[in-house]
Simulated scan of single mutants.
Amino acid sequence: MKRPLYYLLCAIACTSMVGATMPMAAIAEAIQPQETTEQQAQADATSSGTDKAEDGTNTNATADSAEDSTATSTGTSQTDPADANTTDTATPGTAAATGAATTAPTPSLRARTNPTPAAISTTSQTTYAHSATATQNGFTFTVSWNDAPAGTATIFHVTQANGSSQAKARMDVPTYWDGGSQESVCDPSRPAWASYCSLGTAGHDFTFDFTASGTYRIYFYFMDNDRNDPQNDKGIYYLRTTAEVTVNDAARPSVTQIVNSAVAQCRQQTNGSEYDMALWLHDWTLDQLEYDHSLNWCSAESGLTRHQGTCESYQRIYSKLLDAVGIANGRITGNGHT
């Protein structure tokens, strides 16, 4: 009992001596830097952990990268031609192909992307090489454009005359053909192709990039009405004009030319049996494009020249290849897929 009491008295005496020689403010100052240093170290560690970013990019590359060619396209205009029958209409819902990767991912094929008819700022240009017009009720709508070199999007300048502030227009999905079957380059069910833009007094610009030799036809639709104001209702609910552009450029081969070239290579690298050719062409198709998760591009044109497409693109390309080598094939659809 005496020894514990002795230690307690010693501790009290030491505390009294320290208190007498060092004021409390000085004790606080001596302790504070240590706490601040510890807090700063903890904050630095937290900041360092936060600043470490992980690359979450989802890689869907399936094939070799492709180079874009450069050349100049030619264009012609045509006003309201009769509707052309369109084959292989795009199916709205599509599914991506699945498979286990066995090698390191190859560079992405998506060197250039034009998923929608993007609107750009109005240009000050007043003269164009080509134009197409549509008139109704004394009002005129005009689409004007110039030929654009390969790799550069063509600008379609849309204007109106004698219309109201309610006048607007939209660019429909381009169709493509090169002597074979006509196809929609994109899926017409996508909302982007149904959106109207106001024309105002300066007009509006739409863009599209032509990537293959052949003929493209684009419908432009106009509206100028105001049901809430009958006196100013111009009565234009459905007016159309057509821009037709023909591209003839060796640097931008047509779909048929690309298919024929692939078939010639297939015949050289296989034993000529249907099985070997079908397998070779199947693998070649997969090497040409990546699945378009925007569900916009859906054609052989987009798959072979833009390297993007939904299941429609894969089916159309493979069918063209099998037809070219004389292998019977068919099309199966279900649940929004093909």
Rank of each mutant, 00 (worst) to 15 (best):
V143A: 02
Q166F: 13
G163Y: 01
P115K: 05
A167Q: 00
W145K: 01
I155W: 10
T126D: 06
V173L: 04
I155N: 10
T152A: 11
N114Q: 08
T159W: 00
V173D: 00
R112G: 03
P117Y: 00
Q160S: 15
Y128R: 11
S164R: 10
S131Q: 11
N114D: 10
N137P: 06
A119C: 05
S124T: 15
W145L: 02
Q136C: 03
Y128I: 05
M171W: 00
G151K: 02
T127H: 06
T142M: 03
G99P: 04
A100T: 15
S144F: 01
Q125P: 00
D147L: 03
P107T: 08
A161K: 15
F141K: 04
S165W: 13
A150L: 13
Q136K: 13
A111Q: 11
A161F: 04
P174F: 01
N137S: 13
P105C: 10
T123K: 13
R110Y: 06
V143I: 09
T154G: 08
A132M: 00
T152Q: 15
R170S: 05
V143H: 00
N162G: 12
A153H: 10
T113N: 12
A148H: 06
I155R: 15
A148K: 10
T127W: 03
P105G: 10
A100H: 12
P107F: 02
